[in-house]
Design a binder for these strands. Structure first.
Lengths: 231, 231
DNA sequence: GGCGGCCTGTAGGAATTCGTTACATTTGGG
DNA sequence: CCCAAATGTAACGAATTCCTACAGGCCGCC
């Protein structure tokens, strides 16, 4: 599945230029002219990379970047006409992953997006993860207690657990989850996901009232708390 | 443990400028003027980030970048005087994580290194705020008492609380709040905000008669009193 | 083939979140 | 002091999510 890149810029010409170049490079794209539209879309899906113009009419761009990058853990590339070094430094320190100055060449934007996507999967694929006293062995579908007791989990449960462990402390939208789990565009596949998560919560011995590891964000998705280390 | 950054550049002045700036920023540094020295050092240590100048006397820089980035999995930032778009694109496509053009500002180099190190852990850093005996844990949606007792708050309540904590002791107009909370269309969204604040006040155990933290400014908006410190 | 067990999606009711409505209360101007 | 506008809050209801069955499918075993 190709990566999803969002474009947030108030100038239609720039949106079009970017989305053409990105589509030709093989990315899926979504364009927005206003921050509010963009934020509405974020409730339904999780982009792999967000291109954000700082000069927005309806919102302070830097605040948006901060929330995207630090609160939600998204990958953010700022595209801005402000070329001062100080602008770039503050943008990057607020959590942006890259900073591109207008006017730009679409080819460079594509190359920088690819660099960000590449860095994500560089770590060697491994199939055991430790988190908060638990150890998940994906090779033998077993979940190990802190006392060493093992419970097995099914393939479907493992898919959900892996998704959570690969993006801890980040919001995972239902749409993104549905896409990652190969969920056909089923109309009521939501319920199936609910059940998968419910069963996973049971195996993790979560208290339904106060979940410590898998937290529900009403109307948005889920977030996995817990400090994960792969090996 | 601070991160290790290597500098590979044939000009001593640039090496010194970079290593000074990086040391001041809290990194450990190692400088090299020739690729062969650098490669010898690589056999003994693994740097977190490698700064590489392309114009080296004893080796083709791009080949070195390619080997570093793709075969060894290192994080590479190219620093080059070659400013053409095509140079940047090929450098990034050969595996570099970033490309900085000479002349550069050391502050931007530091910011870009930090961005690379930050991107390594996909989990969002914990953001918590302390104020007047309370501790708000936005990552797990919990509000902690001065005695350590925790209450959870919902997503909507968290949005309001975050807005207050980001601008303490400043007037927050209803219009600004409405815009920040995404409520775009609703004309009678005012009531919704009132209710959100009411529920938040209940969780903060505010006495309705004498609010200590969230003060209402009749006809204008709200002010959050209290000394906030983020971490 | 038939039986039983495990996995997994579907269904429907319970529980939660949160905006809306309705009404009480407060504020500030005349 | 009176009134209209602004604000607080309880109660309701729509949307969303959780959970307990239940059914179909797949596999192994007799």
């Amino acid at each position: 599945m190709s990566a999803l890149v969002t474009i947030l810029d108030d100038e239609p010409a720039i949106r079009e230029m970017l989305s053409d170049a990105l589509a030709e490079a093989g990315f899926r794209t979504m364009s927005f002219g206003r921050a509010t539209e963009f934020e509405a879309a974020l409730r339904r899906t999780t982009p792999d990379v967000c291109l954000v113009d700082l000069g927005l009419p309806d919102r302070d761009g830097l605040t948006l970047v901060h929330r995207l990058a630090l609160e939600q853990g998204a990958t953010v590339i700022i595209i801005s006409g402000r070329a001062q070094v100080q602008d770039r430094v503050t943008g990057l320190e607020l959590g942006a992953d890259d900073y591109i100055i207008k006017p730009f060449d679409p080819a460079e934007v594509v190359a920088r997006i690819r660099a960000r996507l590449r860095g994500r999967t560089r770590s060697a694929p491994s199939d055991t993860a430790r988190f908060n006293g638990w150890t998940a062995h994906f090779d033998r579908y077993a979940l190990e207690d802190e006392t060493g007791t093992e419970t097995t989990f099914s393939h479907a449960e493992g898919e959900v657990l892996r998704l959570f462990l690969e993006s801890p402390k980040r919001l995972i939208t239902r749409a993104h989850m549905q896409e990652s789990l190969g969920g056909a565009a089923g109309e009521s596949f939501d319920r199936a996901m609910d059940v998968r998560i419910s069963r996973l919560r049971t195996k993790l011995r979560e208290d339904p009232k106060t979940p410590r590891l898998i937290k529900t964000i009403y109307g948005a998705g889920y977030i996995f708390l817990g400090d994960v280390s792969w090996s």
